[in-house]
C-alpha cells in the first residue's frame, strides 16, 4: 500500500479532510507530519533563503520531517479558484522549491488547480493524480466525489456549527489536532467576541502564533474565525471593501475583516507573516477601514521567526485590556 505524506502546513488546514478522503478511497494510507515545533521551523529556515516568508519555511520543515515516513509527498498547487484571481507566487512554486531544497524527499505528487483553464482540464488533472493509484477512472471519480463531499461537510461544521477549525478537523478526521497541552487559568473579565482574520496556516499553527486562540479563550473571548462565516457573506464584503477580489485567499482577510467591522465584534485581530506582500496590502485595507469607522478596535500582529513571544503577549494583553476597560466604561455610562 502506498503511503502519502502530507505536510501540516499552508493548505493543509483548509483542505486536509478532502485530500485524506481522496487518497484513502484510492487505497492509499495518509500520514501527516506532526505539529510544528521549534525544530520544524529551524530545519525549514536553514534550507531556504532568508527572506522566504515564515509559512513557507514552516512548510519546508514539515516536508523534511516526512522524509522516510512515506512513499510520496502530496503538494498541490492552487493557482486560481475563481476567474481572474491569483494566488501568492509562493504557492505556485512549492513542488519545485521542495525538490530543490529537500533533495532527499520521496517523489512529489502534484496537481495544479486553475479554474481559469476550465472544468474539463480540472477533471483531467484529478484523473492524472488518481492514476498513480489506480487505472480505473470510475474509482478516481468516486474518490473525487467523496473527497468533495468531505470538504463540504468540513466547511459546514465550521460555518453552521461554529466549530473552530481544529475542532472541525478533529471531528471529521478523528485525529487529534493539538500538539501541546496548556491548561490556562481563566481570568475574571467580561466576555467578549473577537474576530480573527488571516490565513488558516497562521491562525491555527499554535507554534508560530504563540497559541493565540487559546490565549484569547483564556480571556473569556469567543473567537470567530473567517471559516465560520458563510462564503456569500464574506464574498460580498470583499466586493464592498476592495471592489473585485484579486488574491485567491482575499476572503480570509479583507472579506472577514469587512464583515467583522459591520457585524460589530468587540475587536478584530489580524495575523500576518512578516514580509508577506499580499497580506500587507490586505491588512492595510482593513486597518484603514477600521480607522475610518472608529468603532471597532483593530490590531495586526506580524509573525516571523524572530518575533519575541513577550512582545506578542504584551500586545495581546494590552488589546484585551483596552476592550475590557472600554466595555466597563460603556456599561457604567449606560447604568
Amino acid at each position: 500500500m502506498t503511503t502519502v505524506g502530507i505536510p501540516r502546513a499552508l493548505l493543509y488546514y483548509q483542505y486536509y479532510p478532502m485530500w485524506k478522503t481522496f487518497f484513502e478511497h484510492l487505497g492509499a494510507e495518509v500520514v501527516v507530519s506532526p505539529p510544528t515545533t521549534r525544530k520544524t521551523l529551524t530545519e525549514g529556515a536553514s534550507r531556504v533563503v532568508a527572506d522566504t516568508c515564515l509559512p513557507a519555511k514552516v512548510f519546508v520543515g514539515h516536508t523534511v520531517s516526512l522524509v522516510g515516513k512515506c512513499d510520496c509527498i502530496f503538494i498541490p498547487v492552487i493557482r486560481s479558484l475563481k476567474s481572474k484571481t491569483y494566488n501568492c507566487s509562493k504557492f505556485l512554486g512549492l513542488p519545485d522549491m521542495t525538490r530543490a531544497v529537500v533533495p532527499e524527499a520521496p517523489p512529489i505528487l502534484e496537481i495544479e488547480i486553475d479554474i481559469n483553464r476550465g472544468k474539463r482540464r480540472l477533471y483531467q488533472d484529478i484523473y492524472k493524480l488518481g492514476r498513480h493509484f489506480t487505472w480505473n477512472p470510475l474509482k478516481v471519480k468516486e474518490a473525487a466525489t467523496a473527497a468533495w463531499q468531505s470538504l463540504l461537510d468540513y466547511r459546514e461544521l465550521m460555518y453552521r456549527r461554529e466549530l473552530i477549525l481544529p475542532q472541525a478537523m478533529e471531528e471529521i478526521t478523528g485525529e487529534s489536532q493539538t500538539g501541546l497541552n496548556m491548561i490556562l487559568k481563566s481570568q475574571t473579565v467580561p466576555p467578549t467576541t473577537i474576530g480573527l482574520i488571516g490565513h488558516a496556516y497562521l491562525l491555527y499553527d499554535e507554534h508560530i502564533n504563540y497559541q493565540l486562540i487559546r490565549r484569547l479563550q483564556q480571556y473569556d473571548a469567543t473567537v470567530v474565525t473567517p471559516e465560520m462565516l458563510p462564503g456569500n457573506i464574506i464574498e460580498a464584503s470583499v466586493n464592498k471593501l476592495a471592489g473585485k477580489a484579486y488574491w485567491t485567499y482575499e476572503e480570509e482577510v479583507v472579506g472577514a475583516g469587512g464583515h467583522f467591522l459591520e457585524s460589530g465584534v468587540d475587536g478584530i485581530i489580524g495575523i500576518m507573516a512578516f514580509g508577506c506582500g499580499p497580506d500587507s496590502l490586505m491588512m492595510d485595507m482593513v486597518h484603514r477601514h477600521a480607522t475610518r469607522q472608529k468603532t471597532t478596535p483593530f490590531m495586526c500582529l506580524t509573525l516571523e521567526e524572530h518575533t519575541s513571544e513577550t512582545g506578542v503577549i504584551t500586545r495581546l494583553e494590552a488589546f484585551m485590556d483596552m476592550i475590557h476597560r472600554r466595555k466597563q466604561k460603556g456599561e457604567a455610562v449606560c447604568v
Binding site: 480607522t291 472608529k294 478596535p297 483593530f298 506580524t302 524572530h306 518575533t307 512582545g311 504584551t314 500586545r315 494590552a318 488589546f319 485590556d321 483596552m322 476597560r325 472600554r326 466604561k329
Partner: peptide, 12 residues
C-alpha cells in the same frame, strides 16, 4: 473620551 482606542509598539 478617556478610553484607550488604539496603540502601537515598536517591533524589532
Amino acid at each position: 473620551d478617556g478610553i484607550v482606542i488604539d496603540f502601537a509598539m515598536n517591533t524589532v
